[in-house]
Write a protein that binds this DNA or RNA. Structure first.
Lengths: 150, 150
DNA sequence: TGCCTATTTGGCACTATTTGTCCTATAGTG
DNA sequence: CACTATAGGACAAATAGTGCCAAATAGGCA
């Protein structure tokens, strides 16, 4: 699965080259298509990127839930509504749809961060903040990891 | 199926061009006809757009239900009553019937949002509100996301 | 440390998509 | 019957997306 974090840059058309390490994972699956959607962690916006097969598995999970339950409706609007499929081009890039680019505040410098079966794309500044806050929390609460059973 | 969200504009005749990504799906079905009807999510009005075959399938579902049950009658009045069939023209546009345009408060800027087998059309301002509320709700309910494995 | 290879990025040209404008056909009205 | 208003269709300009090539950079190996 995906491992590591990489700093990359968008070109002026909004294209992002996928780190070779991540691309290898996709090639291993035999399908380089990905699905990309909006997400938010700790008030900070980012994009979630799934290999197509993982995304489909996830959609199936969602379909099993009660469709008209109110939180589910919100969730579908938010997470599924924004999801769009992209293909990786010959030099390993994807075009990030304008709305998503705008949502996550992606300008030039971005960071791609692995998250198990998927990875996330952050605006560099936003990522620095999120990362620093996470570190801070760990330092100030020594029991944090213990409480999680790690 | 449909994926992604797109900002488009109506021309002064009320015509809306369907995003190429969505049109591909219709072309894949070999039938570009669609059915469009009124809908409301979280108190906010929008339009539901179905490929014709999906709509027919949905009608069959409805037919199986007890026809004179009161809520079913209401639903039929509302959802089926507003439904109208449109064809996509040569440059990929549909004409949105005036009543529906008015219903959903469509002015110039609209957003087309995928929703699995169909998509929705929102007035841009309305969509922003609905989206922001959904985002808010999800942020405040981390357990819900946890249940979904996010 | 320096060379070689692989990866990433920038630039350019070409194609496709979207949108605004114009034109014609049709129906309604005087 | 002629004129006007309007809807629908087509054209064309502007914009955005895609593909390709090559420069620059980073990483690996000797």
């Amino acid at each position: 699965m995906f491992r590591g974090a990489f700093e990359h840059t968008l070109d002026n058309k909004g294209r992002l080259s996928i780190p070779a390490k991540f691309r290898e994972v996709l090639i291993g699956k035999g399908d380089e298509r990905i699905v990309i959607t909006n997400f938010v962690v700790e008030q900070a916006r980012c994009l979630d990127v799934y290999p197509l097969d993982e995304w489909l598995r996830f959609e199936d999970e969602v379909r099993k839930k009660p469709r008209f339950e109110r939180r589910m409706v919100s969730f579908q609007n938010y997470y599924l509504g924004g999801a769009s499929e992209c293909a990786v081009d010959k030099q390993g890039r994807i075009l990030i749809p304008p709305l998503l680019r705008e949502y996550a505040g992606l300008k030039r410098d971005v960071v791609l961060v692995s998250a198990l079966d998927k990875f996330r794309v952050w605006d560099q500044q936003t990522w620095k903040k999120v990362f620093a806050e996470a570190e801070e929390k760990l330092m100030q609460d020594p029991d944090f990891l213990g409480d999680l059973g790690l």
